[in-house]
């Protein structure tokens, strides 16, 4: 009898330890980054251009570039993702095409980010001749986050009660108008919070933009979507591995990392909080 409970105690101890290790990993990483990076953060750091071959000055162009790329990725991923999910939840009947689409989405979700980078280089930069540019980078990131957005949208659309659809259709309102006027507005908050997690991913990715959009240094801010940009993740990589003076720029590196983590985890945290709030206050 005792042995049975001892086993249980040991097992539960291990299980709790795992949870603790994971929490400590996140906590430790975030702590180290904040601890080392906070000193570099200042208004100038966020709003000024880099100077002295990027060993001094700020990271404003990289912040701006990441914002541009992220907005571009949303502009591509969100409409496509919502439309795909509408097809899958509202229109599709089970069959070969749906199976094909679902396998396609799963496989796309599994494509490594560096392969997305190669795809962006081979297709947008070279084949479509967009060059290394905001456009190429946004398209690459947009397709990278497409599966996340489809998943989030599908879940949100499925959560809209079937009775709403029936009520609308029974009034002689067409399928499309039912989808547009009843289903979509009720699913939208869920779609957006779910998609934010994908947006965070787009903001933090490095490999997909390395060959498609990111520049080591740009003297001017981008003037059009066909210009290259600096971006926070790439800036970190470059400073940490190929900068002019790697050790001397450590504070700048930590500061940039802190800014990126704050942006990405900030976005994620907002999504998690809004989602929790929405779940507690569900109206139907």
């Amino acid at each position: 009898m005792k042995w049975r409970y001892l086993k249980q105690h040991i097992f539960f101890g291990m299980v709790r330890a795992s949870a603790l290790i994971i929490t400590l990993a996140l906590g430790g990483i975030v702590f180290y980054i904040v601890y080392n990076g906070i000193g570099a953060i200042s208004w100038e750091f966020i709003t000024k251009q880099p100077t002295h071959s990027m060993t001094k000055g700020g990271i404003m162009p990289a912040i701006l570039g990441t914002i541009y790329l992220t907005i571009g990725a949303i502009a591509i991923g969100l409409p496509l993702g919502i439309a795909s999910a509408i097809y899958l939840t509202e229109y599709a009947k089970q069959g070969r095409i749906v199976r094909l689409i679902k396998v396609g989405i799963n496989c796309l979700a599994g494509v490594p980010s560096v392969v997305f980078g190669l795809f962006g280089l081979g297709f947008f930069v070279i084949f479509l001749k967009f060059g290394s540019s905001i456009l190429s980078g946004s398209l690459t990131l947009g397709f990278l986050i497409l599966p996340t957005i489809i998943g989030a949208s599908e879940e949100a659309l499925k959560a809209v009660p079937q009775t709403f659809r029936e009520a609308s259709l029974s009034l002689g309102v067409s399928k499309w108008q039912t989808t547009y006027r009843i289903v979509l507005p009720n699913a939208l908050p869920g779609i957006l919070t779910g998609s934010i997690l994908g947006v965070g991913r787009a903001a933090g990715e490095t490999a997909p933009i390395m060959f498609t959009a990111a520049a080591y240094f740009t003297a001017k801010l981008p003037g059009s979507i066909f210009d290259e940009v600096m971006a926070l993740p790439y800036h970190i990589y470059v400073l940490a591995t190929a900068g002019t003076n790697i050790e001397a720029t450590r504070p700048i590196q930590f500061g940039t990392v802190l800014v990126l983590v704050a942006v990405v985890l900030g976005i994620d945290l907002i999504a998690i909080i809004i989602r929790g709030y929405m779940r507690r206050n569900k109206r139907w």
Binding site: L26, I29, G204, T206, Y237, A240, Q253, V261, V264, D268
Partner: peptide
Amino acid sequence: IKETLKSVIELLAGLPSVVLGFFGMV
């Protein structure tokens, strides 16, 4: 604890890979 831990794991998933790479390297 369940809710907190789920959020922790979601945030861990959200950490950009370059940040983890930087952490490992530095």
